[in-house]
Design a protein around this nucleic acid. Structure first.
Lengths: 218, 218
DNA sequence: AGCTGTGAAACATTTCACAGCT
DNA sequence: AGCTGTGAAATGTTTCACAGCT
C-alpha cells in the first residue's frame, strides 16, 4: 500500500494475465488507446472486478473515471509476468511433437528463444529443424554450461520422461514444460507444468457423457 | 445418499480423476491388486482426503479398513469419466502440429478414435497421415452427416480459429480442443478447452522471474 | 457521470478430524 | 488397528458494492 511491498498473487491470477496481455496486444494492433475493465471483461468473458483485482496485485495501473491506457497496461503486465527479457528454451525429444514445436515460429514473438533441440536417438541426431540441428542428449550438460537454458520443453516418450527431467534438473534448468503423459517429480526449486493431451480428451469426454451440454470443467 | 442421485461434481475433481486413472492403470499393469487413498496420495503428491472425497462424488468404491480394489476402481473411474465407450475425433488443420497429433498413436489406447483429418489448403489435401488421407474442409459437413464426430481438435492458425470453430459447431460437434492461441467463443451446448503453449511458457517465465524458486502456479 | 481500487460477502475447494465399518 | 466416507473447519477465489478520484 505504501511502496513496493510484495503482495501475494493468487495462483489463478497468472494464467489470466496471459489472456489479458494477448487481448491488449490485439487492441493495440488495432489502434485502441484506452480500455476499461468493463470492456476488456466483455471481450474475454469475465467479471470486470476480477480484472481490476488481478491488476491490483501488481500496482495501480488505471485512472479512475477513465480506464487503462493500453500501452501502459501492456508494459506493466509484460513486466509483471517477467517477459521484459528473453528466456532461452530447449526442446528435449525430437520426435513428431518435438520437431513440430521446434519449427513453430511464434516462440520468438513472445520473448522466448529456442537455443537447442536434443535427442538420444542416433537416427535423429544431426537432423535439421529450420534454424539448427538436433544435438545428442549427451552434449546437454556441456551445452548448459556454455549457454544459459531457462526452460526445457520435454517431448520424449512417457517411459523416458522421469530420467530426462532428472537430467535436465541436474544440469541446472529450473523450469520444465512436460508434454509426456506422466507426472514427473523434481527437486525443490524446479517448476514443472504439464501439457497433457489425453487428460484433456478425457475431460471433454466427461463433459459430453455427463449431460447434454454445459457441463463446463474449465 | 440413498440411490443414484446425481451429486454436484466440482470442476476441479475431473482433471484429477484422469490422474488417478493413469496411476491406477500403471499399478494394475504392475500386478497391484489393492491400494489405499494414503498410498495413492503419496504417489500423486496429494492429500488422501482429497482422493476419497473425489471418489465420493461418484459412489462408494472402497472397503473400510482395507482400501480400494484396483480393477474395480479403474472400472468405476472409467465409467464416471465416460470412457466406457469409444469417442470419435477429428483433427482440423493439417499443419505441423496437426500432423504430429494425427500420427500420435496412444489416442486409441484411451478409447479415442481418429476418424478424419481436414485442411483447407490444396497443397495438403490428399496427403497421407498414417492410416488415412487429409480431406478437404469443404467435405466436413457431409462427413459429419455420415459419421458421428464427438470431438474436434483444432490446429489451424490463430487467424482461422474462430471461423473454423464456428463451422465445427454448426456441423453439430459438441466438444472442441483448441490449440490455437486465441480464445474462441461457441454457442451454448458446445464445450471448448484450450491448450495454449505460449500461455504455459509465460506462466513458467513468471515463476522464474518472480523468485528463486517454488513460485508454484499449477 | 464514470471508472478504478479494494474491503467485505459469497462461493468454491481443500484439509481436518472422526464416526463407522471390516 | 486400519482405512473409508463425510460433515465441519480452514483456506482460496470470485463477485459485490461502494468510497474515492478524474
Amino acid at each position: 500500500m505504501h511502496g513496493d511491498e510484495k503482495r501475494h498473487v493468487p495462483a489463478a491470477t497468472v494464467p489470466r494475465l496471459t489472456l489479458y496481455l494477448r487481448k491488449l496486444r490485439e487492441l493495440h494492433a488495432h489502434g485502441v488507446a484506452r480500455v476499461s475493465s468493463k470492456d476488456l471483461a466483455a471481450m474475454i468473458d469475465l467479471n470486470p472486478a476480477q480484472i481490476r483485482k488481478d491488476f491490483s496485485y501488481f500496482g495501480e495501473f488505471g485512472t479512475r473515471g477513465v480506464g487503462y491506457e493500453v500501452p501502459r497496461l501492456i508494459a506493466e503486465i509484460t513486466r509483471s509476468l517477467g517477459l521484459d527479457r528473453t528466456w532461452n528454451a530447449v526442446i528435449v525429444g525430437a520426435g513428431l511433437l518435438g520437431t513440430a514445436l521446434a519449427r513453430y515460429r511464434g516462440f520468438a514473438d513472445q520473448g522466448f528463444r529456442l537455443v537447442g533441440v536434443f535427442d538420444s536417438s542416433p537416427g535423429v541426431i544431426g537432423a535439421s529443424y529450420g534454424s539448427g540441428r538436433v544435438r545428442a542428449i549427451d552434449e546437454f550438460e556441456a551445452f548448459c554450461a556454455q549457454e544459459r537454458v531457462d526452460i526445457a520443453l520435454v517431448t520424449v516418450p512417457a517411459a523416458e520422461a522421469q530420467t530426462t527431467v532428472d537430467r535436465i534438473a541436474a544440469a541446472g534448468v529450473r523450469a520444465v514444460l512436460d508434454f509426456a503423459p506422466v507426472r514427473v517429480s523434481v527437486p525443490a526449486g524446479v517448476i514443472v507444468r504439464q501439457v497433457d493431451l489425453s487428460s484433456e480428451l478425457m475431460i471433454l469426454a466427461y463433459s459430453l457423457a455427463d449431460d447434454g451440454a454445459g457441463g463446463d470443467v474449465s
